[in-house]
Amino acid sequence: MQKATPESQDELRIIGKKYYGRWISAFIVLLILLAVANSVINNPRFEWKVIAENLTEASILQGVLMTLQLTVISVVLGFAGGTVLALMRLSSNPVLSAVSWGYTWFFRGVPMLVQLFLWYNVAALYPKITLSLPFVGELWSANANSLISPFSAAVIALVMHQSAYAAEIVRAGIQSVSQGQLEAARALGYRPAQIFRHTVLPQAMRAILPPAGNEVIGQLKTTAVVSVIALQDVLYSAQIIYQRTYEVIPLLLVATIWYLAMTSVLSVGQFYVERYFGRGTVRKEKRAWIKRKTPALAVNKERIGNNG
């Protein structure tokens, strides 16, 4: 067996490319970030002491709980309704498909703030809400003003708004599953419910989760619009305080910090959920990435082995 000579080893030596532009651009960006951080920390107008005092104030914490409550309710009910709408849209029944399309068209086309005001003032259109059946008569009735409170109006508006967007996300995920997978499942004797559970859903989740995670984060921020109907979320709690103390900027920064904290937690959760559903694909992508990044190393190892 022939051993590798010093001359052959010198020929196989790899010299890395020097990326001077990368280091220069990174240095410039770091200087800009340091300048911004220094300006923010040393600017007395930010009033960091006021921010620290109000960050855990009782009304602010109550607003955080209200924001989380609205987000959870609207996301859970919104995606449940969106899944139903997506299945209706994919149905061969033209009536169901048309109704789903019309619902999505309307609630995606009307701004969230307008929807909120409409539900909050629904008593102007229907002062009394009744439930009745033909030949039976009235079963139940209630005054719209007492039934539609600010909280219920916010929940209805957020759920209907969310379900319209969730329907398109779920529909796109279901359609991302190839027809061949469905035909193979039918050939194995799977029933429609089993096909959806074992074939469609696991693969569709990989396409659904990234936009769904973004939608959840966006919905958390959308809940800030409920402050216009005096529902005490984070923003409205901050507004109540600065209307009394006139410390507008520090209280808005308190709300900003809480929104950033909540969205950061949701982002971490999204990362782990996506990694769980894409665990097979992620490993394949990592192996492909390593092969792309180290082609010369693989060739050189092969040459050394042949010379050895």
Rank of each mutant, 00 (worst) to 15 (best):
V216A: 04
A184I: 03
A172F: 05
A193Q: 02
A296L: 09
A142Y: 08
F46T: 12
F151T: 15
N214R: 06
Y242W: 08
N306I: 15
W23E: 14
Y165A: 09
Y165W: 07
V136E: 09
E53N: 14
I229H: 03
Y19R: 07
Q194Y: 02
L188F: 12
E215S: 04
A153R: 05
T281M: 15
V84L: 14
G269P: 03
L133W: 09
S237A: 01
T199W: 03
V95H: 09
E302S: 10
V273K: 04
A144C: 15
Q243T: 13
G173E: 09
G278S: 14
L182N: 02
W101C: 02
V273A: 14
A261Y: 09
N306D: 12
I169M: 15
I51L: 08
Q243H: 10
M160C: 09
L68K: 11
S8M: 15
M205Q: 00
W23P: 00
R292Y: 07
A80C: 07
F271D: 08
V72S: 01
L220T: 07
R303N: 11
N300Y: 07
P150Q: 05
V159H: 05
V155E: 07
V76N: 12
S39P: 06
I156V: 12
K293S: 05
P134R: 07
G213M: 03
F106W: 15
G278I: 01
S237C: 01
M262N: 10
R197L: 10
R206V: 06
Q181M: 08
T223W: 00
Q9P: 05
V84H: 13
A167V: 01
R303T: 13
P150D: 06
L201A: 08
V268C: 04
L251M: 14
R171F: 09
I28Y: 00
S74R: 01
Q9T: 14
L85G: 11
M66K: 02
R283Q: 15
V50I: 14
P134N: 13
L209Q: 00
V216F: 10
W105S: 06
V159L: 03
Q243G: 14
S97M: 10
S163Y: 03
I257E: 05
A187L: 11
E302L: 14
E7D: 13
A255P: 00
E285C: 00
P94V: 13
G189P: 03
S8W: 14
G278V: 13
T222W: 12
I249S: 01
V36E: 01
S91F: 11
I60T: 05
F277P: 04
P211C: 05
M160I: 08
I290Q: 15
V136R: 00
T83N: 10
E302W: 08
A157N: 05
A204Q: 04
V155S: 08
V170T: 09
Q243W: 12
I41C: 00
E53P: 09
P192C: 02
S92G: 11
V226E: 02
L33K: 08
V110M: 14
M205G: 10
Y120F: 12
L147F: 15
A187N: 06
I28A: 09
K286G: 02
L65N: 03
S132M: 04
V36M: 07
T104K: 01
R22V: 12
V228R: 01
V216T: 03
P44S: 02
